[in-house]
Simulated assay, not measured.
Amino acid sequence: MQEENYMQKKLIALAVAGLVSAPAFAQSNVTVYGLVDVGFSNLGGSSTHKNRSGIDSGLQSGSRIGFRGVEDLGNGLKVAFVLEQGLNVDRNTSGGLLGGSTNRQSYLALVGNFGTFAFGRQYTPQHTFFDSIDPFNTGTVGNVENLYATGVNSAVGADLGAGAIRLDNVVAYVSPDFGGLTVTAAYTANGLADESATEKNTKSTDAKVWAINPVYKNGPLLVGLNYHRITIDSLDGTSNNDAKNSVWDLGGAYDFGAVRLSALYGKSKLSGDAIDTLGIKNTQTSWLVGATIPVSEAGKVLVSYIKTELDYSSSTGLKDRDAKKFSIGYTHDLSKRTNLYAAYAKLSSDKVGDDLAFDSVFRNESNYKRGINIGLRHKF
């Protein structure tokens, strides 16, 4: 999603750095904001599905409507909130907007000289970190998250929060700015559902997530580290059935003026008794190099190359695999709030069976190996 201004994401959490930026805190009222994104999408190269063409919502950035506000409590203390709902503008669905629950961000925050504490559903620090480095700002078929560090087996992926960009029940803290350095720390006792009641003499099936994300920004330089750990005491409440996912990422970007260069490198390790039983114990290594190249006052060319390698434990008997994706795109500002965009991506992989496929330029999209997006985005 290409956005310095995108939702003014600056201050928050495990989700996060998706709070509200300082200018919003200066207000004492409620602000309605949103984004409408719609375009043409063509996906091809699948071994299982016909080529797909369609008009889709949220190709570069998810279409949404939201409310944010702040109250000045005095003595440098403020309370702020965000309630945000996703929309599908291409069809007759509202994603819960009318009578439903919010499905993007929804949190309440306390802000002061000590930093920011936020409580609720929020962006993960990893997603916010990737968004600041990826030339495609985690949007379109060029999105780094379509391939990078999303390779947890689907049998446990939902429980482990694999690929999740927002988590529930988050308590997050964002430090003050120390000469360009900010630190986000977050915890949730169950990131994908409400914290469940656990019967006595059984183990919890909740997915617990700890995360920390220090980031340093100084002029054209951005560099940071993400680490998070996801643990489940038991996938089914029995003993000796735990699962763990440990993830770390190192990345940065430098804007030379004529080009902004970006890089990411990280590892994701899947382990635990349940993982051993399922026979999917593995380590995933991913890296990205990319560039954002201004070609006019309004236009930028976007380029990225991603490679992911999956190394299984020898005890699983599964073959190691890898996947690569090349992406190129262009974005053109028509105004401060409206832009046109186009993107193309092609993925190649040595897929072996259906056990954890690096199978799409879009996550979970029917084994498509190439994709084109052309669209229009407006922010209000």
Rank of each mutant, 00 (worst) to 15 (best):
S271T: 15
G62M: 01
S271F: 10
N169E: 05
F136K: 03
R260P: 03
G120D: 04
T184Y: 01
V111E: 14
K200Y: 13
G74L: 04
S175D: 09
R363I: 06
A345R: 07
S268E: 15
H378D: 01
Q27I: 04
S349K: 10
N218M: 12
A291Q: 07
G266N: 06
L261Q: 02
S286C: 08
I275M: 11
N75F: 08
D134Q: 11
T316N: 08
D333H: 08
K9Y: 06
G252T: 01
D359P: 09
V141R: 03
D311C: 07
A343N: 00
V352N: 11
G252E: 00
G96D: 09
A15I: 06
H332M: 08
A197F: 07
D320Y: 04
S314I: 06
D236E: 03
K78M: 07
G371E: 05
N190T: 02
D333F: 03
A162C: 05
H228V: 01
K307D: 11
D273I: 11
A158R: 02
D276L: 08
T116N: 09
S94K: 08
N169M: 04
N240H: 15
F81L: 07
D206W: 14
G86Y: 02
A149Q: 14
E71V: 15
G34V: 06
N42V: 08
A162N: 15
V259S: 11
D276W: 04
V215P: 11
K208N: 06
N169D: 02
I293W: 02
S204M: 05
Q27S: 12
E195V: 15
T116L: 09
Y227L: 11
N75C: 06
K346R: 05
G257E: 08
A164H: 10
R337E: 09
R363T: 14
N5I: 14
L264C: 10
V223W: 09
A323N: 01
S335K: 06
G257A: 10
T308Q: 13
Y148E: 00
F380A: 06
G179P: 15
